[in-house]
Amino acid sequence: MQRVIGFISLLRLFQLFQVLIFPGILFLLILAFFYEWIDRKFIAKLQNRVGPPWFQPFVDFVKLCAQEDIVPAAADKKLFAMSPILLLTLMLTSLFFIPITETAGILSFEGDIVIVMFILTLVVILKYISGWSSTDRFSSTGAERVILQLISYVLPLMFVAFATALAAGSFQISKIVEWTIDHSLFGTNPDWLLIIPMILGISIFILTMQAELEKIPFDIPEAETEIVAGWLTEFTGRKLAFFRLSVDLEMVLAAGLAAALFLGGPVGPVFVLVPGFEWFFYPFFYTIYFLVKSIFIILIISNLRGLFARFKIDQMVRGAWKFLLPLSILDVVIIQLLIL
């Protein structure tokens, strides 16, 4: 009995470690700051600049936290105060589903990809609410643009995300990862032709994620030369710091999800140096593969950011419905035909 209780508490301790430290909250926060630094440093190199030192995102966060927190007199105070915290919480929750140290995330059950997609939509609605609650002209305009952007990119995003899920026959991220590995060139059922829909899928996924993250071709809701900072305009101090952190976390989510759905997640060849200690080597190597793959996605996102100007909202909506949606449906069709 004693032993059983001891085992259970050890398991609990391990779970607590997983949730709080690795690969949980602490690791994810470090990763968020690190990826923001990579993004900023890479784009600085593209633009012949020096770029920030590695600790800059964290220092920015601390500085913003220490700054004055102004709430507009006309704002809906409760919503205004609630939305940054809610956004951060939602982002962290959805990140628990991302496989980092193994093929499954900290949380893994049938249908988890639906939850991640749901959270990705909910986040945008939260942005709308936060813009709306600040009752500023620029914020309201930005908030409207957020929703306009959402209705144009959300369908292509869902289609490409579910294309692999439909092929894998499961709505569980870990099963999708295992199916992708199985059908990759190094797996047991290699399928060369599957490269085509995968490349198409990841391209659409990165583009839609850029809209979700409000990065440059699609940073229309916070276009600074038109509407100052869009829905973010009235947020200062701690609240702004939380928003910025949640955008960084969203970047980790975007990169992690892209890696999980299209690049085989954290899986890669594992070199076991000491036989019998596989349990030690697997998380180590998997984390490295996860980092490599997600940084690759981040670099693509940064590169697009440096290469393009901002779209106008009508161009974005038209482009998404005209090109992205048919292409994403085509992606589903190709995958279905290939696995027949």
Partner: peptide
């Protein structure tokens, strides 16, 4: 460049 959101154009 910066008005159209093209930061590379601005820097270069």
């Amino acid at each position: 460049g910066i008005f159209l959101g093209h930061s590379t154009m601005f820097m270069w």
